[in-house]
Structure formats: C-alpha cells, structure tokens
Design a binder for these strands. Structure first.
Lengths: 248, 248
DNA sequence: ATTCGGAAAATTGTATACATGAATGGGCTA
DNA sequence: TAGCCCATTCATGTATACAATTTTCCGAAT
C-alpha cells in the first residue's frame, strides 16, 4: 500500500499520501503530536515537503493544530461522522438542485446516464461476490462526481470535493464494510434506485425533489455507519476507525 | 492596513494576512503568477512562511495552483460569486436545521438573543449614518457565528467557516457597499426581520422552516451583489473586485 | 519579416542549518 | 520521600543554499 507512494515524483504528494495513510490506518493516534522528524525518517522526504503536507492535511480536516505548534491526528465522535455525511448530502443536494435549474439536455446527461447504465449492468449480473463491490465503488464515485459537475459551478464542485475529503464523508467510504453485512446487496440495489430517481427528477427540472432525493441518498452512508458502530469488528475495518471515539 | 501585520509575531500569519490583502486589493491580478521572491521582498518574510501562506490560501480558494508550479490569484465569474453565497446559505441552513432538531432551551439561546437585541437597539436609533453600518457588520457576524455554533457540530461549524472564507461569501462582505445604495437602510431592517423569524422557528423546533429561512437570508447578499454589478463604481468598492470577471 | 533554436536567467521544489521556546529528566533541598 | 528548580534535550518556526526545470530573450537562418 505504501509502495504506491514510491512511484510519485513529487515529494510533497508522496508525503501527503503517506501521512494520510498513516492517519487512516491508525498508526498516528488522535491527540498525540505528529513528530516531524519521526515522519521524515519514516517517509523519506525532508522536512519542507513534509510540512507542506501537514498544512494541507490540516485544511482537509485530518489533522488539528496543537496550541504550542505542531499537529495531531483529529478525533471524531460518531456525531461528527454523521454530521460530515450530512454536510456532503447538503452540498450534493445543492449541486443537484442547481443542475436541475439549468434544465440540462440529453447531451448534458449522456455521460452520467452511461455511468448509470454501467452500474445497472453490474447489478443485473446478480453476482454479489467481492468483485461486484470493488467494481461498484469507482462507478459510484464517478456518478457522484458527474452529478457534482452538472451543477455547472466550479465553486460548488470544489466544495463537494472538500466535503468528500473528510475521513467519513466519501460516497463510497463504506462500500467495503457492506461486504460484511447481510443486507449489503439490497442496499446497493436501493442506492442505484436512488440514482435512477435522482436522474429522473434532474432531467425533469424538478429542483426541490432532486435536492431532497440527493440528501436522502447520502443518508444511506449514515445507515451503514450506524450498523458498523454496533459491531466493533466491522467498525475496525472502516478506514480511519482509530479516529473515531466510541461514546456509547 | 498593512500596518496591522507588523504587530503579528508569527511570520506565517503575517504573510497570510499580507497576501490576502494584496489579492483582495487587486494588486495581484488573476491568472498571473504570484512570484515568491517578489512577495518576499514586499512582505519581508522568508520564502518558507510565505510558501506556507500560499498553500493555505490555495485551500481557502483565493489562489489556484498553476500547472508548472506556483500559484495565481483566482478569477471568479459573477455566477461563481452567487454560487459561493448559495453554498454558505446551504451550510448555514443545515446548521440552523440541526440546531432546531436539538430543541435548544432558553439557556442555549440566551447569547444569540442578546446579539439580536443589540442589533434591535442599533436599528431603533434610526440613525442611518456610516457608523450604524460599521456597527452592524460585527454584530451581524456574531449572530451568524452563534447560529453556526448552535448546530452543536464542530464539523458543520468548521465547514461554515470555510465557506465564509471565500472572497464573496461572507455574511457581512457587502455591508460597506450598502452605504452607497438608496434602499440600504431598509435592507438592514429586512435582514434583522429575517433574524427574528429564524430565532422564532429555531426555538419552536421548526427545522424545515428555519432551514428555508436561513437560506433565503443568505440570498440577501446575492441581491446586493446583483445591484453592485450594475454599477462599476459600486462594484469597485467590493473587496476583491479585481477577482471578478465581468461577463455581462 | 518571421520562425526556429539555444543559451541565459529566473522560478519553484527540496534539503538543511540555525534559533527560539517547550518539555523532560535528574539532582538537590526541605 | 516528595517537590521544586535548573539544565539539557528536543521540537517547531524560520532562513537560506542548492538543484532541476521552465520561461524568456536574443540571434541566426530561411
């Protein structure tokens, strides 16, 4: 996994990816200072690009600045994770409404419809093996990205990207834990039905409806998270589980 | 104005404030590279804290990374500015709804009600001089901050702060140009009426209503902006006017 | 006159040295 | 034995030197 970072030319990107991985894997515990020199030894870049990565990760919400300098991995409560998903839903809902209000034509919707068709074909194969889940995730992300692009606003698109960067907000963040859940396949079918309803409302110019649908769609992730929170074993498989403070 | 930055102990903060001022004042034109060495000479800090400030300003949306390294001030269309305000409205609306759903008691609402009363007293003086506008702005910002805090979610609060950091999204960003407009005083009265309605819905736990009200309240800023856009003289007085591309 | 090529200048990315202030540990004293 | 003070260590913030790549400008050739 860390091997991926070796091929990157840019030292700052390399430090960024490595640090994010270390935080998500739980090797950097919340609250305790991230020592720059220790990271320099571990990642193999000098302090300058490392500090750049630290600043960016603070901006992404992965790290928090400590009062007397330096950074620490952030800790999130379960309510924080729910809120992060709610934030994403609000932003995606806004994007969907703006898209509907622009009255997109068939040409505008061709790309996202193609993605939708690919997900349909995937689900019609009715093989619920691991490979189906790993194929679903990137297609799902593409659908959400294309929806964000249809807003026609770079400002909105960028804000959604920021919201997705949060450790627990990404649209496909919990796909892998779905594998563990009995109702997993059903949930994928429901998610894709949401996609269908969203595109239907979108192409009909129904702004209010598409906003509500898109928000509710995001709340699927909250369901997964709530389920996972009831089972420590499942919870531990979520990327960044170590950042979650068990409050119940 | 730049004098403020001289008292700051932290070189990074100093560079951050100075750079933001240079961008907003239009001395750094959109699209053209921000030369690090030129900024070093101008601001009087070394390249290291300057680059840290550049990275942070990219995160705030003031700057964009150029393909072959370096940064440039970003350019915004009028639609981008509207979208930034819409984003703030969506986030504040979410915060207000979450606040209402928590069923806040009188103790929770005491602080924001005090702010509301202070604005009431200010407007009851019925003196529409410049001082009234300059007093209104900080109280207005406090009201919005307290509303964001009532969401009870640090994640939501931080996201609102990010949205406000955008050059054209801040709640009080256009107060100063209101002075130029004939209907300026009336708009302040309307804004405060919005505040009253928001608090009424909030204390009644009416989540849907308070969300809609808060979104609509944000759209007041869009009205100011549209007015200003019709008059170049007024537009030039907006901080960051140079970042706005005249498209119509 | 215009275009292509190359060299020089300048710019960013990276590494490292230095300074200042915080944290820690040991020793001394009560 | 417990607590406090001081010194040492360590961590971050800052400045600067170096390298690699890009940009620019000038000259020559078509």
């Amino acid at each position: 996994m860390l091997g991926d970072t070796d091929k990157v030319q840019n030292q700052t990107v390399r430090a960024l990816l490595a640090l994010r991985e270390l935080v998500l894997s739980g090797e950097l515990l919340p609250g305790e200072r991230v020592s720059e020199l220790a990271m320099v030894d571990r990642i193999g870049v000098s302090r300058t690009p490392l500090r750049t990565a630290l600043v960016k990760l603070e901006g992404e919400g992965f790290l928090e600045a400590l009062p007397n300098g330096g950074y620490a991995a952030r800790q999130f409560s379960i309510d924080d994770a729910f809120a992060a998903i709610e934030v994403r839903g609000a932003m995606e809902g806004l994007a969907a409404r703006l898209a509907a209000e622009r009255r997109p034509g068939d040409a505008d919707l061709a790309a996202i419809r193609e993605t939708q068709n690919r997900i349909d074909r995937l689900l019609n194969r009715r093989k619920s093996g691991d490979s189906a889940y790993s194929e679903f995730a990137p297609l799902n992300e593409m659908f959400h990205r294309q929806l964000a692009e249809l807003s026609g606003s770079p400002v909105v698109f960028q804000q959604i990207e920021r919201a997705n960067a949060h450790p627990f907000a990404s649209p496909s963040g919990f796909i892998q834990i779905q594998t563990q859940m009995p109702q997993a396949w059903t949930i994928l079918l429901i998610a894709q039905d949401h996609h269908h309803c969203i595109l239907e409302a979108l192409s009909a110019g129904e702004g209010g409806r598409v906003e509500a649908l898109t928000r509710e769609h995001a709340r699927l992730a909250q369901r997964y998270l709530r389920e996972a929170f009831n089972d420590q074993h499942t919870l531990d498989q979520i990327p960044g589980a170590s950042m979650l403070r068990r409050t119940g």
